[in-house]
Design a binder for these strands. Structure first.
Lengths: 211, 211
DNA sequence: GAATTCTCTTGACGACTGTCAAGTTTTTGT
DNA sequence: ACAAAAACTTGACAGTCGTCAAGAGAATTC
């Protein structure tokens, strides 16, 4: 095989791999849509396929089985949500600005992506039972923890303070707050978003008290 | 019908009702056992019946359908777990004693009832999708919130301090901490229980700071 | 002790599940 | 343009699901 042929083969192979990966992501997107509406327990492969433009058989062409599909969904989901707050962290010049920006994005995410968030909590609960999901879920959890830590540590930095609470603890606290607000929001409580912002303010004030 | 006959009829009826309720609880217990092992998504009525000493048909004699059964399970579960910390609250004479007792029971519960806790989080996630569970789950959530509040407010009282954090917020924070520790514990992390106690200490110190 | 009511088992039903093989359609390479 | 490979559809499979009806067994009533 000449170098040129190699290059061509590479290009072809690359193109195929890309198309393959693209369709996988496309199907994962449809699956996420279905999962976020029905929840893990009631989501079937046929239902997922109906939410896409393909038939149910194609899922086994792109995924080895249901676990493989859902795992890919989880990873796909992660890629979308982890960088959500990076802009706020990068641009904020004062602690007040950062806190306000954090709260704003948090509330917006609660409102606009509520069904996606409930799916996350659903899958995280599943991972307590199904060991096959555990590693991926733990990885997402970790990157969410990192995301929270980037915000909080930057906040402390801007405020000229140091933090005594560990990253994992900090994440657990915010996660608890968010989860409660999500439940309130999904049950029709319109005050959920505002009280989430209040609670975040309050917790930040406790963790990084005024000098 | 004579008064005596009425009394007898009452007694009979009462006895029947009691037996009926007893068997319902017994089956709910078997169901909780199964649910806590398999999770909501993979628990079937036949599996539940196999974990009891009855056949699968009997479930429809005591419960109208699956939702009815699971709802009863949730209520049955609630009755067991809400009073778990009342003894500690009642007997503690100093804030240190209360905090230590709280931590002790918390850690013990994490260890001994881990599968039951994961079921709780599973069902709570389900309630975000299935509206039929929502009311009962919310009621349990509220009584857990009350339980936490009894502990924390008593702690503040013993310490001679006041709390600025709302009960719901307080519960959300502790719930987040507990949930994280549960995940760690179930994934084989032996430090989960200890670090939970540490985190609870730390949060209590933040919420009710030394004078 | 027979009659009646309660309790429980058994077996079946239609629907739905994940999986897969066979075949059709579309795309690609030459 | 034609052959090969990839992409997709269709239909079927073995199993499981919740539900329910028919009837057996046990307890209760008179």
């Amino acid at each position: 095989m000449t170098p040129v042929a190699e290059k061509n083969a590479d290009r072809v192979s690359r193109r195929q791999v890309d198309k393959f990966a693209e369709r996988r992501d496309q199907l994962a997107e449809a699956a996420l849509q279905t999962l976020s509406e029905l929840g893990y327990a009631r989501t079937s492969l046929r239902e997922i396929a109906q939410n896409s433009e393909f038939s149910h058989g194609v899922l086994h062409y792109y995924f080895s089985d249901k676990v493989d599909l859902i795992t890919h969904c989880v990873r796909h989901y992660k890629a979308r949500c982890v960088t959500r707050y990076d802009g706020v962290v990068a641009t904020a010049q004062t602690p007040e600005e950062l806190k306000a920006g954090f709260g704003r994005v948090l509330v917006a995410s609660l409102r606009d992506e509520a069904t996606m968030h409930r799916l996350w909590y659903d899958l995280r609960s599943q991972s307590l039972f199904e060991e096959s999901f555990r590693a991926d879920v733990a990885a997402i959890d970790k990157s969410l923890e990192n995301m929270i830590w980037r915000i909080v540590s930057r906040y402390a930095e801007l405020a000229g303070r140091t933090i005594t609470v560990a990253p994992a603890t900090m994440y657990a606290v915010f996660d608890g707050l968010f989860q409660q607000s999500l439940a309130k929001y999904l049950s029709g409580d319109d005050t959920a978003a505002d009280s989430l912002a209040d609670n975040v303010d309050q917790v930040l004030a406790l963790v990084i008290p005024a000098r």
